[in-house]
Amino acid sequence: MKVKLILLACAVMFASGLQAQVLNKLKNKGEQKAGEAIDNLFSGKKKNSGNGTGTNGTNGSNNGGNASGNNSSNQGSSNGSKNNPTNNTGGGLVSAPPDVNQNLADADVAYKKSSYGEARYAVQQAMLGVELEIGNKILKSLPETISGMSKDQSADEVTSTGYGWAGLTIKREYNGDKDRQLRITVANNAAWMAGVNAYLANGGYAQQTNGQQNWKQTKVKGNRAIIEYDQNSGYKLSVPIGTSSLIVYEGVNIATEADMMKAAETVDIDIIKKQLGEQ
């Protein structure tokens, strides 16, 4: 009886030891495969799990363990990318301007229901649509080239929030040889614009600069203006138009003040005034 018990105990111990060995081997194999999969992933040799599975298949039946090890490594790598994915698809946003007529109709409906917040949102959207159209018309009115510099259409920009006070901003860039650049910005109806225009047009600017000759008052096509020069940024010409609009010309590497004025005068200010409803 004692002998039987000893044999049984030995069998259990042997079996458990064997089982532990097998499990340990499986674990080691799994870790090894996981390491290989990660190495492959980073070295760019293998990027998908299909290859890994194929390799396992050739190893025959030891393979439950290997397969699971490999799967876990694949899951590990895919989980890693899930944690911090990089977008590599998607069509971006549709940049169509708001439908003005539809938004006006929506505003009407909302107003009649006394949903004033909704009505205001719809009017703002309609206004955004109109301002973008105005901006694009002004961009079309600007010359194709100025003083040998060609327009950079990719830099054309019309910005509007649809809020009456936030205003409309239109930007155009011209580039030429020898790093010459002329940037034109038309700002209209911003909350601060009337104050700025009053300030510039009434000589407030002159009073504050204490006689430093890096600026002076001038005229562009009959409109009062301020021209400034800075060694680093070049010429800047600000022309207030009407009560709430301003045209700013910024010239980089423009040779002389006369060249800057000549470049500015190629822009038809009257068309801009008309589009913005300025007198």
Binding site: Y116, R120, K274, G277
Partner: peptide
């Protein structure tokens, strides 16, 4: 509506500014 329909964008915009004003007064 009529200004926008006739392509008079500036007038349309002015009218919309007034609408925003009207709405803010109502609010």
């Amino acid at each position: 509506k009529s200004s926008y329909g006739s392509g008079d964008l500036e007038n349309a915009r002015f009218a919309m500014e007034q609408m925003l004003h009207d709405l803010d007064m109502a609010i």
